[in-house]
Design a protein around this nucleic acid. Structure first.
Lengths: 211, 211
DNA sequence: TCCATAAAGGGACTCCAGTTTCATTAAGGG
DNA sequence: CCCTTAATGAAACTGGAGTCCCTTTATGGA
């Protein structure tokens, strides 16, 4: 029996202040830099430790694997989610959302970073869970816009608000990942208009579930 | 001066028959297996060579890097693209397309494989180009369905046929990558209906370009 | 059928990511 | 302010990915 403490939790959780927090911040910043500059395939923990000026041992102990590090980075990103804006109309709100997504994905640092975290999430369940949480947060932030449109009578009763919000982002991410075309404001507006039109036509009305 | 031959092309191009073809087939099959089973992060050339029962040297010489191997795999996948079906109506055609995409992405082997090649494409320009070519091929195969709908008067003149086809796939890929939700037939039908509704509303009419 | 050589393959070598062990530092409760 | 110990960090070690050099195989034209 080595200790009385009951299977002490992950390192960094008992004394999270001071140095521990500084190490985490430095490591996550460097990890984001490497992902944005060189992509997921070029991220390795030894390199992160070097560039962050932190002990290799620390990085391996606290994050263990590349995908584990990205999962923690995603938790950090989810905490910095911006509040939505409101314009008073469905199309205005959806366009505001679309332009926010578009400007993020078109940004020289953020765009490659998002590509990289999506790539990492395809490689491990825990990282995928962190990515899902990140997008759940974003979708739930914007869903009330759509619900308000339903309440105003702009959209059919029973419209799935979250699905409409996802419908705005989907074509922008699809373009980011599968084509080389630039993501411009026109693409954002088109995505918002298409989602609004489809929602008005009732395409996102929840289908009745058998109990 | 070592040889008269002018900077002989990539290995495998002068004698592509027989053994060379068998090696390529074995390597690509194993690469697909590993990507589907373990994801992009676990693909390494030495392991591929072992499982394909092929010399390590050969794999490194012909493909060089993991992303290079995936790029070749994508070329191979693009050659096996299926012809579209035609049902006579826009919604029928789009649903047929959506269900084909959905069943592919929901397949226990194909789904993870597509995730993995998308991940690989985020890591290198050449691989990204191969992925873009793959999706260009698919989109061009299905675009005529939409053009026929324009010709029949179902959709506004000037509708961007390729953009409509992409609008069908986009929500399915977005769900595959950013949520844990299952990709069922209902999701496919919803994607097709939403794209059709948005197209009817004129959301995909090409905007006039200043000359 | 035979031959020139394109392409595959075997084996030794290097280098570095990832692990382990133990010493050092500083967080945070008293 | 001090002391316990959580957490970091330095150094030695290991295994295997990736490279190099040279031999063997078999393609495809003559």
């Amino acid at each position: 029996m080595e200790s009385v403490s009951p299977a002490s939790a992950d390192p960094g959780t008992v004394r999270p202040g001071g140095r521990t927090a500084r190490v985490r911040a430095a490591v996550l910043r460097v990890a984001g830099d490497i992902l944005a500059e060189q992509g997921f395939a070029h991220l390795d923990l030894a390199d992160v430790a070097r560039r962050a000026e932190v002990g290799r041992t620390t990085v391996y102990r606290r994050w263990g694997t590349v995908t584990g590090l990205v999962a923690d980075l995603l938790l950090d990103m989810a905490e910095q989610s911006l509040p939505r804006t409101e314009t008073g109309s469905l199309l205005g709100d959806l366009k505001a959302n679309a332009r926010l997504v578009q400007s993020t994905l078109a940004d020289p640092r953020q765009g490659p970073l998002f590509k990289a975290v999506i790539a990492a999430a395809t490689c491990e369940a825990k990282t995928a869970e962190a990515l899902h949480h990140f997008y759940d947060t974003r979708v739930q932030e914007w869903a009330p816009c759509v619900q308000q449109a339903v309440d105003r009578g702009e959209l059919p009763v029973g419209t799935d608000a979250q699905e409409v919000v996802r419908a705005v982002s989907a074509p922008l991410y699809y373009r980011l990942l599968t084509t080389g075309d630039p993501l411009d404001v026109a693409a954002a507006d088109q995505a918002a208009e298409a989602a609004a039109a489809a929602a008005r036509a009732g395409a996102y009305v929840r289908t009745a579930q058998p109990e």
